[in-house]
């Protein structure tokens, strides 16, 4: 399993009406890596992630996950997707949210219960599980959202800006969780527009105006362009000014 490709995009294009949002993009993500997608807002990161999650339909090109063609009902079960919006029912409690979403993946009984406790533990929300989500802080909602994405033990996790609007301490704790998940053998795709977060990824794709302008590990990207920081790499490839 180790060197197989988890995500393979071949000439993937997405257009809304006459505007092309993703231009003929190809990309490979390997098993077990934390893969970052870096780029300014509006670059097309969310659209790419949504296509991989099976929510948005590509206009052309091929998308394969675990060597199987998407979209597919079976593949959906292997993906955990955390969107920019929390996607939680605010008038339900934390545990009620988990119960509902786990039922959507057909989980039930003892297995469901154990799994809910596991993810609550992982995101450190066990003490707050009976609280109504409306009363959660922003960071708690983000963490519960992550917990929901992890519920059904996906092999691939897609996180769209998981740390946006979150304080540095919490951001660190989310990254620690991502490392834990990586150790368990999960593949993680994470988008960000924060340059210093890009350094934490195993490999990185730089996205700009609907196209990938560079791919590689943070170190090799810096080396190739003789840059000190990821920001310089981005400027080198993109030419333009970076507006996070």
């Amino acid at each position: 399993m180790d060197n197989t490709m988890v995500i393979e995009l071949t000439d993937l294009t997405k257009a809304f009406g006459s505007t092309t949002v993703i231009k003929k993009t190809s990309l490979e993500v390997q098993n077990g890596e934390i893969f970052g997608m870096l780029g300014p807002s509006g670059a097309g990161k969310t659209t790419l992630v949504k296509m991989i999650a099976g929510i948005e339909k590509p206009t052309s090109g091929e998308l394969r996950l675990f060597n199987k063609k998407m979209p597919s009902h079976r593949l959906i079960r292997q993906i955990g997707y955390m969107a920019q919006t929390d996607g939680l029912y605010h008038d339900l409690t934390g545990i009620e949210n988990l119960k509902f979403f786990s039922a959507m993946y057909g989980m039930k009984g003892k297995k469901q219960k154990e799994r809910m406790e596991e993810v609550l533990e992982l995101v450190d929300l066990t003490a707050y599980k009976q609280k109504v989500v409306r009363n959660y802080s922003g960071g708690m909602k983000r963490r519960l959202s992550l917990a929901v994405a992890l519920l059904h033990e996906p092999k691939l996790i897609l996180l769209d800006e998981p740390t946006v609007g979150i304080d540095p301490v919490l951001r660190q704790s989310i990254w620690n969780e991502l490392y834990k998940l990586k150790e368990k053998g999960m593949t993680i795709l994470v988008t960000t527009h924060v340059m210093d977060e890009a350094d934490k990824c195993d490999r990185l794709a730089m996205v700009r105006e609907g196209a990938i302008i560079a791919v590689g590990s943070p170190d090799s990207l810096k080396e190739e362009t003789k840059s000190e920081t990821i920001e310089e790499v981005f400027l080198y490839h993109g030419g333009g000014k970076y507006e996070g």
Binding site: I55, L88, Y105
Partner: peptide, 13 residues
């Protein structure tokens, strides 16, 4: 608007 529909659409439901 709350993103729960999107989450549902990403699930096998």
């Amino acid at each position: 608007t709350g993103g729960t529909l999107e989450r549902l659409m990403g699930s096998p439901v």
